[in-house]
Amino acid sequence: MKHLLSAGDLTAAAATEILDIAAEMAAVQGREIKKLPTLRGRTVVNLFYEDSTRTRISFEAAAKRLSADVINFSAKGSSVEKGESLKDTAWTLQAMGADAVVIRHPASGAPYRLANWVNGSVLNAGDGTHEHPTQALLDAYTIRSRMGRIDGLRVAIVGDVLHSRVARSNALLLKTLGAKVTLVGPPTLVPQELGDVSYDLDALLPDSDVVMMLRVQKERMHSSYLPSAREYSRRYGLDGARLRRLPEHAIVMHPGPMNRGMEITPEVADSPRSTIVEQVTNGVSVRMACLYLLLGGK
């Protein structure tokens, strides 16, 4: 694996290998000594054009636990803010000897552009409304840990699918791994082209093994996607009553950060069905596995 740009690039075998390695990495995370010498002498640059402390520290922890050197390059207060182009930044990183660049960027496809301009590996940590492949991998890992499998599961991805990189990556990856994915939300926010679609959350709940809630941003109200936050939560928010309509074994996921009260109520977020905290923990293991596969060989 040279780059990790899209969850759609992973075959079922490749994705399963990542999850298997992540399981080994997770075992390391449970030990007193959490560090591995694997990537000694390798340099990983975290190139973040968006504020995302959660994702950045997750990648930073992953790289450090594999003994890589980590350089954090945040766009704020740097040459980027002074107008440096992505291409010039790429050359700078190249000159620093970056073996891998983890990039978070507001423009869809920016990691693809970067991959043309650096020799090292590029890892997409979220690009615009395109993809967030490591989030999908950690979600798949979480589902597999909780449910024992992914193949054959019925997964509902609920919310602002149109603007969600998490939804795109998950739809691709979970389908590759054999799940039946349904995208759920109001028609203005759920495009037809990405997979099976439903506008009726209540009808779907009794037949769902996994419900993945997406963050719905307040600004969607301003461009006529939604009439109001209240109407959205009434139709598509996951509350206690809806939680009880799920099968006994079903789990509730959310990539965070949550809008409590909007797409999910505190009762649901804090219930034992919720995997939200595990998702964060699993993020480090999955990212360790990805970094190993990108940098652990010739």
């Binding site: 759609g8 869809s108 690009d127 395109h130 990405l194």
Partner: peptide, 10 residues
């Protein structure tokens, strides 16, 4: 269309 949806481009 389908490509814009896949690529996450408006």
């Amino acid at each position: 269309g389908d490509v814009s949806q896949r690529l996450g481009l408006t």
